[in-house]
Design a protein around this nucleic acid. Sequence first.
DNA 1: CTGATTATATATCGAATGATACATAACTAT
DNA 2: ATAGTTATGTATCATTCGATATATAATCAG
Lengths: 212, 212
Amino acid sequence: MITRESRNYILTDTKKLGRPRTFDYDEALMQAMSVFWTKGYDGASLRDLTQAMGITGPSLYAAFGDKRELYLKTIDLYADVDGCAPVVAFEAEEDITKAIKGFLSEVVHYATEHESGAKGCFLASSVVTTVGQVEGVAERVEAAIDDTEKRLAARFDREIEKGTLHEDFPSRERAALLYDLRQGYMFRGRAGWCGERMQKDIDSRVQMLLAF
Amino acid sequence: MITRESRNYILTDTKKLGRPRTFDYDEALMQAMSVFWTKGYDGASLRDLTQAMGITGPSLYAAFGDKRELYLKTIDLYADVDGCAPVVAFEAEEDITKAIKGFLSEVVHYATEHESGAKGCFLASSVVTTVGQVEGVAERVEAAIDDTEKRLAARFDREIEKGTLHEDFPSRERAALLYDLRQGYMFRGRAGWCGERMQKDIDSRVQMLLAF
DNA sequence: CTGATTATATATCGAATGATACATAACTAT
DNA sequence: ATAGTTATGTATCATTCGATATATAATCAG
C-alpha cells in the first residue's frame, strides 16, 4: 500500500516540489571549492563565490546555507571525492612498488596540475588556516588525516597478507610517512615548485618506504 | 673631518629625530606575526592587529606601512629568526643522530607548544594560502624552503667530511626528506595533534634518515 | 627660545563585506 | 484552475573593512 508519506518520499527523490534549480548543485559546489582553495576562506568573498558558481547571492544562501556552511560542504567534497584520487590509485594498483610510485606521482601531479588551477592540497594549503577559526573545520581536517592514513596502512596490510611484505612490516608507521611525503609535495606545489623538480627523488623514496 | 652628512648619519643611528616611539618595534612585529599566524592574512583585521600590537592604526601605518607590508615583515621575521629554531638546534649538535632526533623533537614541540599560542608552521599553515594572492609572498616562501634545505644538507655534508657518513651519502635528498617530515609534523600540529602522538615514531625516522 | 621632525590620539572616510526583504517566476499536487 | 512550494532577480541592508586627515605632543638641532 502506498501511503501519502511514502508517495511523497518517492517524489522528493525523483521530482522535487516547486521551481527547479537552473544550475547544477555539484558543479557549483566544485567551483566554490576552487575559490576557497585559491583564495582561502576569508579571502573568498561572496562576490568571488557567486561569480565563479554562476549564481546569485540568494540562490547561494537558499541552496548551501551561509558562507560557513558552504565552506564545510566544499571540505567534505574534497575529503570524500576530489582529494583522495591518489589514494584511490594507491589502492587500485596490485604491485606495491608500482602502487607507491603511482601514489607519489599522482600527488605531484595533483599538487601542480589540478584542473581547477588551484595549487597544492585544499586542506593543507587553505583549510588548515581556519582550524580554530571556523567551527566545524577542526573535526573535518583531523578526520581526513585519520581516514587517509588508515587507507594507506590497510594497503600495506594487504601486502603483508599476500606475503609480499614481512609480517612485522610497520604498516602504520609507513602510512604516516607516506602521508607526510604527500604533505611535503603538496606544500611545495603550493609554493610554486614544478612537477619535474619533485619527480626526481621519487624512486629513492619508494625504496625507502618498502625497506625492512 | 666630520661633515654635516656624516654627523647626521651617526645621529640617525644612535638617536632619532622627532618624537620617540612609545612601543617596541620588534615586539609589536612579533605580536602581528602571531595574529597573522592564527587568523591568516585576510582573517586578521586591522582591529585584531592594532589590539594585539598595543598601538593605534596610524601608528601601525607610520611604522610598518600598510597591512601587506606589515605582513611581509612578519614573514621575514619568521623566516630569519623565529621559525628556524629547530634548524639552529640541528646545526649546533655535533652528534648527527642526536642532531636529527633533536631537530624532529624541536619541530614537534614547535608545532604544538609555541609560546604565541599559534599552532603549526606560520609559513605552511597560514602564509602559503596567500601565495599568488599577496604580492611578495611567493618569493619569500620559496626562498625559505631553499634556505632551510640548504642548511640541512650542509649539516649532512659536514658529517661526510668528518667521515661519519659515507662519501656518497645523498645529503640533498635526505635534507629534502627531513624537511618534508618537518612539514608533516607542522601540519599535524595545526590540525590539533598533541606532541606525544607525534613523538612516538621519531626514533625509527632517525634511523631511516641515516640509512645508507 | 624657535623651527623642524616624528609619533600619537581622535575621528572618520569610501568601499567592500556577508546577508536579506521583497516581488516574481516556475514547477507540483489536488 | 487553484493552492502550495521552491527558485530567481533586484535592490539594499547594517557592519566591518583597510586606510587617512587633522590636530596635538614630544623630541632634537641650532
